[in-house]
Amino acid sequence: MSFLPAGSYREGDSILHKMDPFCKLLCTLLFLTAVILSDTFPGYLLGAAGLLAVTMVSRLGLRTALSGVKRMWLFFCLILLMNTAFFETEQTWWEWWIFRFSADGLIQGLQVVLRVAMAMVLGNLLLSASSPLELVGAMESLMYPLKFVGVPIRDVAMILGVAIQFIPAFSEEAETIRKAQTARGARFESRKLSEKAGSVVPLVVPIFLAAFRRADELAMAMEARGYRRTKGKIRKRRRHLSPADGIGLLLCVLFCAAEVLL
């Protein structure tokens, strides 16, 4: 029996936690746009201040907000290097072969790193303040306009729901298969590239077989009960909005505007 880690969701009762998930998602996307649009020093300052404010409101703590960012240090160095060395500009410090080191490149690299870091913090805040189920519901709502382009969102929602239900069952099955094969003498790791695929087959093939078998049974049961492609009107889910949602949205819009201006 293995328990599924719940990602980074942390229970709490701050305003951020209680906010309607759909609005939360919208706000996050707006904030993200603002972050992407920023490219001046006061702009970045405003962005950082905003993130700090949200962290405080959510009572999640700086550590949660910044989790994972430190681990990316190598990647950030790479971005800095690539941008410093390859940026197209006239004023270069030093040129050699295909490398063109420049101050503009360095600044560009810094900006990218900053934007990525801020996006990560934003992501952390969203994920820590909303349960996976809430978020999937929010995404389903977000998909509503797709309905007009012919996307069967009711079916998509059903598929996502079934997928979520499958996860714990498949996880347990995978554990059992791994144990059974290990007991048979399976060694899943191997040095040579030519053997790597083969050594993992005893794990992967049975897992897929078990998953497809369950899917087959469920599909047959659904068909037997008359489930068909969904047609017709889609009832809009009733949403419970509170003033906090409105204020949050408003702030984010203002934020976006501010970034554009700065």
């Binding site: 059974a180 094969q181 048979r184 005893p202 049975p206 077989l209």
Partner: peptide
């Protein structure tokens, strides 16, 4: 031999 050992065939 686990329960329903058929699931280990590959």
């Amino acid at each position: 031999v686990f329960q329903y050992p058929e699931s280990q065939l590959f």
